[in-house]
Design a protein around this nucleic acid. Structure first.
Lengths: 113, 113
DNA sequence: AACCATGCTACATTATTTGTAGCATGGTTA
DNA sequence: TAACCATGCTACAAATAATGTAGCATGGTT
């Protein structure tokens, strides 16, 4: 898959709008999961593999390269970590943690009726 | 792909944590895009196809079913629309619109150095 | 010098997505 | 009322992406 660069045509959009590039990127398997798991702190490749439970090294590496090129993560001696932009992004999506719990509850309640 | 139900094992997680089910769902091709495009108002199937520019009807229908089952969207006479939970979800992610513009600018600036 | 752990690649298998054609239904117009 | 539409959606083959497993290369330890 080609890198979803803002300004370029991406999967799902010919307009080059940044939001479309971002949604393409975040819509790729494991991209959101990697960001989510990195917010708890830096991790080595193998540590990240474990946090993600079931990701293949092939795909992990592919996503890490994409996220690095697009400056959402960076690699240091301590391993991979969110960049400052990555942290900003995480802060936007972090309420999903709480929200998903309510959502899960609502789905559960509804299935009891 | 099986539906990512909170409480069940999903792609990338055996724990059943709601956030993992949500990330699985949102990480599927076009799921975020559909939610994004629906926030501007209800749309018929064909209208939604156009808003999404390049989605295949097969996949659109698959995602719509998933999103409907998981109560993020609902279908009315006027077409598909975000459910109240869908609206809540959208409100969480809506800052991505502005954020992506800054991000795009940063990428652009950086590439000039 | 044998042993480890780590970061990562290779590659075949399997799963997902795309693209195109077109069917079934219900409304509208001639 | 019969020939048009538009709509919602399915079928299905081709293309693309993800998985799973093995294992290599490097650098540090015993």
């Amino acid at each position: 898959m080609t890198l979803p660069l803002p300004g370029r045509q991406v999967r799902g959009s010919t307009t080059g709008k940044p939001i479309m590039a971002l949604l393409d990127l975040l819509g790729r398997t494991w991209a959101l999961g990697i960001i989510w798991h990195l917010h708890t702190g830096p991790a080595t490749f193998r540590e990240l593999q474990q946090r993600c439970e079931k990701i293949s090294p092939t795909l992990l590496n592919t996503r890490l390269k994409e996220l690095k090129t697009l400056q959402l993560i960076e690699s240091q001696k301590s391993g991979y970590q969110l960049s400052s932009q990555g942290v900003d992004l995480f802060e936007i999506i972090s309420p999903l943690g709480c929200w998903s719990a309510q959502w899960a509850q609502a789905l559960k309640d509804e299935s009891k009726i």
